[in-house]
Design a protein around this nucleic acid. Structure first.
Lengths: 128, 128
DNA sequence: TTACACTGTTTCACAGATGACACGTTCTGC
DNA sequence: GCAGAACGTGTCATCTGTGAAACAGTGTAA
């Protein structure tokens, strides 16, 4: 899956956006610091893209930018592998839970598949 | 403006959403931990709403929930939203992953159930 | 020049989030 | 009954982001 050492959030992009907006408005680092309740030192680090800002500071700054946080997300759906679960069981209950949660299936379809799977599971399980 | 000691991110809501979804899918804490690359202990803390998760873990979990991060933001204008997400699917691939990972089933049984489910899924899906 | 105000950056002690691991409990199979 | 595994949670050493303050430059006015 995703590498652990690389952040899922594009903090470099955030830093650039902040600096652009700040200079556009001809504000100093400390001006923005006061406006956003982020310290000047931290703001400097963020603008330069060093480190990984915590959630609150990211929230304060995107709020000031009026930018949705999700725009900073490195969407991992680039990965070839969609979504795979590795639980420990595949009981009818679990399959049913998945089916009920599946937006693509109508409730009737989910119900029918659940029932079918349940019967099949029992059949196959008992012949062990 | 905003008080500094209170987070701008509704981590309690996040914890509740995670727990709801996890129990809906009947997954264990460690299952979700493996799926999201968030450690089990951290996940436990988040579900219980203690502490302030860092940005990466929030990103990983909202990504797993298929929930926009902005929905966790405490904007000045308050919105009331207990929203339920149903991001997951029950495609044959996913069910097959479950079956193969099921220690209680023999490989042959898992294979047979996978094939059966695959056929049934196609049948039911196409009749829309 | 001198003195002062401002800029962005860096230092540093500290608070707290993290994951590996251990713990106690509850299932589950034998 | 009895192991053994899986469950959620607690412990703890490590790591890192933080803000106050110090810092080095750069005007700017007397």
């Amino acid at each position: 899956m995703g590498l652990k050492n690389e952040s899922l959030i594009n903090t470099v992009e955030l830093g650039r956006a902040i600096k652009r907006q700040r200079e556009e408005l001809k504000l100093s680092l400390r001006d923005v610091a006061d406006l956003t309740d982020v310290s000047a030192s931290t703001l400097s680090r963020i603008e330069n893209g060093t480190g990984r800002p915590d959630a609150d500071n990211i929230a304060r700054l995107t709020q000031w930018l009026d930018m949705p946080v999700d725009r900073l997300m490195k969407h991992a759906d680039e990965s070839v592998e969609p979504v795979i679960y590795y639980p420990h069981e595949a009981t009818p209950e679990i399959v049913e839970a998945h089916l009920r949660a599946d937006r693509k299936l109508s409730p009737e379809t989910a119900e029918a598949l659940s029932e079918l799977f349940r019967v099949a599971y029992q059949q196959f399980s008992k012949r062990k």
